[in-house]
Amino acid sequence: MVTLLRLGRGVRGAAVWALLLALLLVVLYPLVWMVGNALKTNAQVFNDPFGLPTSLLWPNFATAWNQGVGEFVLTSVSLTALATLATELISVWAAYGLTRVNIPLNRQLTVAVLAGLMLAPTVALVPLVKMFQGLGLYNTFLGLLCLYTAFRIPFTAFLMRAYMLDLPREVDEAAALDGASTAATFWRIILPMSTPIIAATVVLNVLQDWNEYLFAMVFTSGTGVETLPVGLADMMSKNGTQYPVVFAGMVMAALPMVILFFVCQRYFVRGLAGGVGK
């Protein structure tokens, strides 16, 4: 009986491992295949798409880089960095104002800042296009920066507000007794104490901004301000595409975020958990 039970457990254990490993394969195989195809010749991608690469064409990466991926990366990196910075600053100020400063209409303003969470960006698409055409922001870096910043604020402020509500009240009071101004309290005390949530939201915002597609596609039309996701899709659809070069571009687009995830896994988990769990 005991051995039977153990056997049953063994079978179940094996089934569990088989499932987990099969899923591992389902996740990893396409990714490995993507890297493999980035090293093939165009003919091999078409004739033998699933074979191991018979060549190791590292120059595909250089070609992709020179065919525009370099510019896309530059745009994406600066856009992601600046938009994240702007989002973080504006959101952390707002969260501070809502939680630690006495302001009139606090409840209404909280709703005003957080209600944006409910909005799908597609809903605002048509008026935004019209507005940006009028402002001369259409097809500009600044235009995308404004959109990326604005649409990430509600979520970021939401997480920060929740975090700041938990910080002990006494610290502000002590600072106030020492004669510190609201601004000084923010910069010297609350901001440093909020580093964990800032780190978590930075990681989330970087992930979102780096991969954003809707705005990048609608608000840019070629030349100069294309981000990586849009640029890659363009590369793919253009006449006479070299597929290995597209694969190389895809690898270059995916790698930074995968590395960022493994390096900052702790903050990812916290940010993600915060995003849904609260």
């Binding site: 019209k130 039309s221 070629g222 030349t223 253009k238």
Partner: peptide, 19 residues
Amino acid sequence: TQETDDNAIKDKEKVLIGS
């Protein structure tokens, strides 16, 4: 000003028409 001969030129012209 140059755009590529695909959706890029169409989008650009729609914008210029609109404004």
